[in-house]
Design a protein around this nucleic acid. Structure first.
Lengths: 223, 223
DNA sequence: ACCTGAACACCGTTCAAGT
DNA sequence: ACCTGAACACCGTTCAAGT
């Protein structure tokens, strides 16, 4: 009997349990703590056992709410994609696509470690399909045929996906090389990279994003 | 004494070992088999122990050649990036960038499971820097300033990265949702996605790629 | 219905020992 | 120098048992 779950008190030879002092488990609480743990430690160091410790329960208790670790990740995907606001339909398709792109980038910035997983998994759940559907609607509303809508989504989506991945993993969050290149080696062997280095920083993200995104929107004749 | 390593034969009361029948370990052989195993089983199911079994040795023998699993992955990154051919300098910068982009996509197609890891790790090794350097050189050769070169690389790189990630994980190789959306649900709840579905297949990759890549090259005034 | 402890079949890696 | 077996500290998950 763990102290975490309450105290055993002897009264008239029987033991009764005090009301629990911890919050009960729920899918919502498990998901919230899972995301927290992932952002703190990274996806590789995340484990059901650590999550249980943080929740103040045993590892196996979590299995009463999710049948497997994969189910937890599925739920996190739905939670995170579901948090993306749907732009107002009164805006133009291009404006709505811009908002989607910024939300996508924001997601990568706010949940960088989880985003790394999100960026390589298949978005073939209902939540993933809903997100795709909302973005496709912008193209259909602009009068696109299904083919042009699909092509448009793919072209813009690939670009935003690349930007977001770098924004999430570029400087600290992806697994680093075990011996990253040093400043001296960089300056000596790769002078052109060293020269351009200042323009790979975060403060250039907005400008870089706009350079490509605007060009693609205009190519698609949306702006 | 495992039979894998040789046979013990009793002669005049002593045991001698027959010459080994297996190929000796080497970094090259370990790397080659590691890539094979990753492509067969996926990065999550890859393990040192399984790799050892495939190599016909004990797990710990591998540690004579690589200090850790992370070092193996570093070596695989160098091996894979190092296999990308450097386009002939007599070509125009735009032509060379097109070749780099196609090699990048080919890598994702040929090593889709490993590519998923490559796409989220930091390219801060010497091998990663060399690849970046070669692509940056195209921009410098086109007369770009360091800033425009960095912006150009980032814009094109994000796009190719997004294309390659989808080419590697889109249809089979990334972790799937534990309950993927079914065809009926798709048709009923997401008719616009269902309509566009035919244009999300692999045969459209070349056309989709060109649509965006050409637009970006022209925006950068390289074509 | 929900929670638990023990167990199982895995991991990566350390260490001391063999040749 | 290279290879090994046993051990350690982890995993996700199954199962039978508790309330």
């Amino acid at each position: 009997m763990s102290l975490i779950w309450g105290q055993l008190v002897a009264t008239t030879g029987k033991t009764i349990r005090r009301p629990r002092t911890t919050i009960p488990l729920s899918r919502d609480r498990i998901e919230a703590h899972a995301l927290e743990l992932i952002e703190e430690q990274g996806i590789d160091l995340f484990s059901i056992r650590k999550l249980a410790e943080r929740l103040g329960c045993q590892a196996m208790s979590i299995y009463n709410h999710f049948p497997s670790k994969a189910h937890i990740f599925d739920a996190l995907m739905a939670r995170v994609l579901g948090s993306i606001p749907i732009p107002d339909r009164s805006l133009t398709p291009a404006q709505r696509l811009r908002e989607f792109a910024q939300s996508w980038r924001a997601l990568a910035r706010e949940s960088p470690k989880f985003y790394l997983w999100l960026s390589i998994c298949q978005w073939n759940s209902v939540a993933g399909t809903r997100f795709l559907s909302e973005m496709l609607a912008c193209f259909y509303d602009a009068g696109f045929t299904p083919q042009r809508a699909a092509y448009g989504f793919r072209v813009l989506g690939y670009y935003v996906q690349g930007v977001a991945t770098d924004e999430s993993s570029g400087y600290a969050n992806g697994p680093s090389s075990v011996d990253p290149i040093g400043a001296e080696t960089l300056a000596r062997d790769f002078p052109q990279v060293a020269e351009a280095h200042a323009f790979f920083t975060n403060e250039h993200f907005d400008n870089v994003f706009e350079l490509g995104f605007g060009a693609l929107l205009r190519k698609l004749e949306l702006e």
